[in-house]
Design a binder for these strands. Structure first.
Length: 881
RNA sequence: GGGAGCAUAGCUCAGUUGGGAGAGCGCAUGCCUUACAAGCAUGAUGUCACAGGUUCGAGCCCUGUUGUUCCCACCA
C-alpha cells in the first residue's frame, strides 16, 4: 500500500487544486434527475486585494457547498467580481492624478480603457486569492457585473422598470459627495459623531428688532428662504408673517410657523434652507418656498452666493462669521457633538443638494420583499438580522440610482434635443418616438453599482433569456454575507428577484461577523492592518487558515485574527496526518475485502464505531443548522481525543501481534475499524480542510480519484453497552495515571494491578489486557473475584486502590509511601463524604422530589449509592494500611 | 434619539431547551512510550460584570445598574 510522507507539506495544495480544476469537478451542469443546491457568492469588488475577512465569508460558503456536494446534491457556486463604480473610479482617478492626467484629458473612451485594464489586473489577483483558498466554485461560469450578458440584464431591467413606472427622473434633494462629485444613495451615507460648533446669529426684522437662531452650518444661510418658529411658541407668534433680512446677501425672507420646529431646542427658531437640508426641504414644500442652490459640484459656493462665490464650504463659513461679527449680529459659539453624514467610501462630509436624477420608486417593490421575510420565505441566520432587514424596508425611501461617473452601466435614456422627450431603449433609437427628430443624446450618467448587483442571482444564469440554468438553479438556496451588505445588496436582490423572476432569489441568508485585527480594530486599508490571506497560506497552508477561521469563535459575532491560533489548526492537521500515516503503515492487507461481521469486532471497536456514528449525526445536524463552529469542534474532539488518544492506543497491541496473520481476527477487525473510522473522519473534515483530506483519502483508497464526491458518512451503529465499558476503561487508566503521579511513582515503575469487578467488566479488561498494561504502565495484571472484598495482596508492603464505576482496581507495589497514602485516602474520604452529604440534602428536599424530573431524581439516587459504596471501599482501604 | 449584541480561567473564546462551570493558548510537573516533541501524561486557576426577582434549583429566564461594541436616525 502507498504510504504518506513523513511530514505533511501544505505546498501540494496548489497541485491538488489544479487537478480538481483539470478534472472539471467544480463545474455544475443542469441535471434534472438530481436536486440542485446553489449558493450565491457575493462578488468581491475589484478595488483592491481581499483580506482575511473576505476569506472567512468564502470559506463558510465553500464548507457548505462541499458538504452538500458530498450529500449528493448537484451544487452550483458561481463566482464573479463586481465593478464597484465609485470606489474603482476614484482609485483610477487617483492613480491618474499621480501621472498628471485628468478624466477630461483622456475622455470617456480613454478612461474606460484604463478602467478595464484595472479590472484585468485586480480581478485576476482576486481570483488567484480565491483559488489559493481552495474554493470549489465553478470558474467556467465566472461573471463580471459589466460583462455583456449582465449589462443586457441591467438595461432590460431599467426599461421594464421605466415602462412600469417604477423608475422616474426627478429633481429632488439627493446626497452629494463633493469629493467624488457624484450622487450617492442613502445607504452609502454613514453618520459619524463629530465635535463641532453651534453658531448663534441674529437676523434683523423688518418691523424692527432681531430674531436669534442657531445653526451648525452658517454658510447655508446663503440659501435660506425662510425663518421658522413653532406655531404655538408664544415668544414668536407676533413675528409670524413678518419679513426678516439676511444681511450678507440682502434678501428678505418670511418668518413662518411650522410644527417641525421644536420650541425647546436652541432658541426655538430655525433657518430654512430647502435646497440643502432634508427637513428644510419638507418645510419648503409645505410653504411653497423657493429652493436656492448655493453649492457647485465641487462643494464650493456658486454664483447664488453673491460675494462668497468661489469659496469652499469651510472658507465661506469663516467669512460669514467674520461678517456677522462686523455687523454686530453674531451672538455666540457653543461646542457641541453632533452627527454628520459622510460618504462611506471617501469619508468626505456629504452635502444635500437638489439635482435632477433618476430614482427607483421603492414603495411597491419593498412590500413583497418585506412579506417574503414575514412569511418565512427568506430566513436569516442569526435570526435577529431579519429585524435589521425588515426595519430598513419599512422605512425605505426612493433609491437614487444615477451616478455622475463613467465606470458602470450607462443609463439607457436618450433625450430628444428637439422636443425633450425621453426615449428609453437598449440601443440608441434612430429617432425620437414622439417628434421623430433624429438628434438624440444619451444620458451621461451611469447606474449605481448595486443596481446591477441586485440582479446577480438571475443575471448570472442568463436572464432575461429563459435558459435551462435559470429554470433549474433559480431560486438559489443560500447567501452568506456580512451584515453591512444587508441594505446595499440583500434587500435589493430580494425585491429585484421578486419583481423580475416572481420569486425571492434565495431562502437562507447567513450573516457572518467582521474579522478584526488582533487588537480588535476593523481591517481597513487606511490603517494598513488588513491581513492578506495569501501571506497566511504561504506560511501555514490554506487548510490551516480555513480551520483557524472556522474554530474558536462564533461566526456571527466579530472575531479577531490571532496568529497563534493558526498553529493550533496546523497542529491538528499534523495530528491527523500522523494518525493516517500510522494506520496506513499497518495496512498490509486489502482491508475493504475483509469480511468483518459484528461478531468479529471487539468491545473497543464497537465503542469507537458507536461514537463515530454519533459524531457523524451530530456534525451533519450542526452543518445543516449552519453551526459550522460546533461541527468543526465536534469532529476535532472526536478525532483527536477519542480516535487518536484512546482508540489507536487501545488497538496497538493487536496490530503489533502478527503471529497468526491469516486467522488473526482481532488484528483484522482492528485494521477494518481503523480504516472505517479514518475514512469517515476524513469525509467529515473535508469541507473544512479540503486539501489534506484529499491527499490522505486518495492515498488510503488508491482506486478513488477524489474525496470531493465521496458520500457523506452516516452510520447506524449503536453499541450502548460497549460505550459504557470503554468509559470504564478510560476511567481506570486515568485513575491509575493520576494515582501514580499523586503518589510520586515514576512512569517507568511498573505496577501490579488486580481488578475486582463484575464479569462483563472483567472480561473486557481481560480482552484489553495488553493495551491496559501499556497505557497504564502495569507490569502484572490479574482479575480477582468481585466478592472478595480483600484480595490477597498482603505480600506487598503497601497498596492503594482506584475505584471505577462497577469495580475496584487494587494497585500494589513496593514503594508506596504509607503516610502519603493515608493523606490521600483522607482527602478522598472527605470528598466522598461531601458528595454524599450533597446528594442526601438534595434528595430530602421536598421541592426537588416533587418537582424535579424523574430521571434526575433517579440519577441522584444512583450517585448516592455509588458514593456510599466508594466510601465503604475507601474505609476498608485505610483500615488495611 | 431609537434598536441590537457583548460582559464566563492570565489571554482568545465555547456553553442548543434552567438540573453539579468548558476548550485552546499560556502556566506547573514528568515523559524522546516503535504515528506525531507541531507530541504524550498529569495538574493548578473562575463571587459566570453588579444589584434585585422568579424557581426545589439560575451562567442561562425577568427587572434595574454599570462598562463596552455595533447598527439605524433629518434636532437646526
Amino acid at each position: 500500500m502507498k504510504q504518506l510522507e513523513k511530514t505533511h507539506d501544505p505546498g501540494v495544495e496548489r497541485q491538488i487544486y489544479q487537478r480538481w480544476q483539470d478534472q472539471n469537478y467544480f463545474h455544475a451542469k443542469v441535471d434534472k434527475a438530481r436536486k440542485p443546491y446553489t449558493i450565491m457568492m457575493p462578488p468581491p469588488n475589484i478595488t483592491g486585494v481581499l483580506h482575511v475577512g473576505h476569506a472567512l465569508n468564502n470559506i463558510i460558503q465553500d464548507i457548505l457547498i462541499r458538504f452538500k456536494r458530498m450529500q449528493g446534491f448537484n451544487v452550483l457556486w458561481l463566482p464573479g467580481t463586481d465593478h464597484a463604480s465609485i470606489s474603482t473610479e476614484a482609485k483610477i482617478v487617483a492613480k491618474m492624478a499621480v501621472e498628471g492626467v485628468t478624466k477630461a484629458d483622456i475622455g470617456r473612451e480613454g478612461f474606460l480603457e484604463r478602467a478595464w485594464a484595472w479590472r484585468d489586473e485586480f480581478g485576476g489577483t482576486i481570483v488567484e486569492q480565491l483559488r489559493l483558498l481552495g474554493l470549489s466554485c465553478d470558474w467556467r461560469r465566472e461573471r463580471f457585473t459589466l460583462d455583456e450578458g449582465l449589462s443586457n440584464a441591467v438595461l432590460e431591467t431599467f426599461i421594464r422598470y421605466y415602462n412600469k413606472g417604477l423608475i422616474y427622473r426627478g429633481e429632488k434633494l439627493i446626497n452629494w459627495c463633493p469629493h467624488c462629485k457624484t450622487t450617492i444613495s442613502d445607504a452609502e451615507v454613514e453618520h459619524e459623531d463629530k465635535d463641532g460648533y453651534m453658531y448663534y446669529f441674529k437676523y434683523p426684522i423688518e418691523s424692527g428688532g432681531f430674531i436669534e437662531f442657531a445653526t451648525t452650518r452658517p454658510e447655508t444661510m446663503l440659501g435660506d428662504t425662510a425663518i421658522a418658529v413653532h406655531p404655538e411658541d408664544e415668544r414668536y407668534t407676533h413675528l409670524v408673517g413678518q419679513m426678516a433680512k439676511i444681511p450678507v446677501v440682502d434678501r428678505q425672507i418670511p418668518i413662518i410657523a411650522d410644527i417641525y420646529v421644536e420650541k425647546d431646542f436652541g432658541t426655538g427658531v430655525v433657518k430654512i434652507t430647502p435646497a440643502h437640508d432634508p427637513n428644510d426641504y419638507e418645510v419648503g414644500e409645505r410653504h411653497n418656498l423657493a429652493k436656492i442652490n448655493i453649492m457647485a459640484d465641487d462643494g464650493t459656493i456658486n454664483a447664488n452666493g453673491g460675494k462668497y462665490a468661489g469659496l469652499t464650504r469651510e472658507e465661506c463659513r469663516e467669512r460669514i462669521i467674520e461678517d456677522f461679527k462686523t455687523l454686530g449680529l453674531f451672538v455666540k459659539t457653543q461646542n457641541i457633538r453632533h452627527a454628520v453624514g459622510a460618504h462611506d467610501r471617501c469619508h468626505t462630509v456629504m452635502e444635500p443638494l437638489i439635482k435632477l436624477q433618476w430614482f427607483v420608486t421603492m414603495k411597491d417593490l419593498a412590500r413583497p420583499a418585506l412579506d417574503a421575510y414575514i412569511n418565512g420565505k427568506v430566513r436569516f441566520t442569526p435570526a435577529r438580522m431579519g429585524k435589521v432587514y425588515a426595519h430598513w424596508l419599512e422605512n425605505i425611501r426612493d433609491w437614487c440610482i444615477s451616478r455622475q461617473l463613467w465606470w458602470g452601466h450607462r443609463i439607457p435614456a436618450y433625450y430628444c434635443q428637439e422636443c425633450g422627450h425621453i426615449n428609453v431603449a437598449i440601443t440608441k433609437p434612430g429617432q425620437c418616438s414622439k417628434c421623430g427628430c433624429a438628434d438624440l443624446r444619451q444620458d451621461e450618467d451611469v447606474l449605481d453599482t448595486w443596481f446591477s448587483s441586485a440582479l446577480w442571482p438571475f443575471s448570472t444564469l442568463g436572464w432575461p433569456e429563459k435558459t435551462e440554468e435559470l429554470e433549474y438553479f433559480y431560486p438559489t438556496n443560500t447567501l452568506v454575507t456580512a451584515s453591512e451588505i444587508i441594505f446595499f445588496w440583500v434587500v435589493r436582490m430580494v425585491f429585484s428577484g421578486i419583481e423580475l423572476m416572481g420569486e425571492a432569489p434565495f431562502s437562507d441568508v447567513i450573516i457572518n461577523g467582521t474579522v478584526r485585527d488582533d487588537l480588535g480594530r476593523k481591517m481597513e486599508k487606511s490603517l494598513g492592518n488588513g491581513v492578506d490571506p495569501i501571506k497566511v497560506i504561504e506560511q501555514y497552508g490554506a487548510d490551516a487558515l480555513r480551520l483557524m477561521m472556522i474554530t474558536g469563535n462564533a461566526l456571527d459575532s466579530d472575531t479577531r485574527f490571532i496568529w497563534p491560533r493558526l498553529e493550533v489548526a496546523r497542529n491538528f492537521l499534523n495530528k491527523i496526518w500522523n494518525a493516517a500515516r500510522f494506520v496506513m503503515m499497518h495496512m498490509d492487507v486489502d482491508v475493504p475485502t475483509l469480511d468483518i461481521t459484528p461478531q468479529k469486532l471487539t468491545v473497543a471497536d464497537k465503542w469507537i464505531l458507536s461514537l463515530l456514528a454519533k459524531t457523524c449525526a451530530n456534525v451533519t445536524e450542526r452543518i445543516e443548522a449552519f453551526d459550522l463552529v460546533m461541527a468543526a469542534q465536534i469532529t476535532y474532539d472526536f478525532l483527536w481525543d477519542y480516535f487518536c488518544d484512546w482508540y489507536i492506543e487501545m488497538v496497538k497491541p493487536r496490530l503489533y501481534n502478527k503471529e497468526h496473520d491469516k486467522d488473526n481476527d482481532t488484528r483484522m477487525s482492528a485494521l477494518w475499524t481503523l480504516n472505517t473510522v479514518l475514512t469517515a473522519g476524513l469525509k467529515l473534515l473535508h469541507p473544512f480542510v479540503p486539501f489534506i483530506t484529499e491527499e490522505i483519502y486518495t492515498t488510503l483508497h488508491e482506486n478513488e480519484e477524489t474525496i470531493m464526491f465521496a458520500p457523506w458518512p452516516t452510520f447506524d451503529y449503536r453499541f450502548e453497552e460497549e460505550e459504557q465499558l470503554a468509559a470504564r476503561f478510560i476511567e481506570a487508566v486515568k485513575g491509575i495515571r493520576n494515582s501514580r503521579l499523586q503518589n510520586g511513582i515514576a512512569p517507568s515503575q511498573k505496577l501490579n494491578v488486580a481488578l475486582a469487578a463484575d464479569k462483563t467488566l472483567s472480561d473486557f479488561f481481560a480482552e484489553q489486557n495488553k493495551s491496559f498494561n501499556m497505557m497504564a504502565g502495569v507490569g502484572t495484571f490479574s482479575i480477582v473475584d468481585a466478592s472478595d472484598a480483600q484480595p490477597d495482596i498482603s505480600a506487598k508492603d503497601t497498596a492503594t486502590t482506584v475505584v471505577i464505576s462497577g469495580g475496584v482496581l487494587h494497585i500494589s507495589l513496593d514503594a508506596v509511601d504509607v503516610e502519603k497514602e493515608k493523606k490521600r485516602l483522607e482527602k478522598e474520604k472527605s470528598k466522598i463524604t461531601n458528595e454524599i452529604e450533597r446528594c442526601r440534602s438534595r434528595l430530602s428536599n421536598e421541592g426537588f422530589i416533587s418537582k424535579a424530573p424523574e430521571n434526575l431524581i433517579a440519577d441522584e439516587r444512583a450517585k448516592l449509592a455509588k458514593y456510599e459504596e466508594m466510601l465503604v471501599k475507601v474505609n476498608e482501604q485505610s483500615a488495611r494500611l
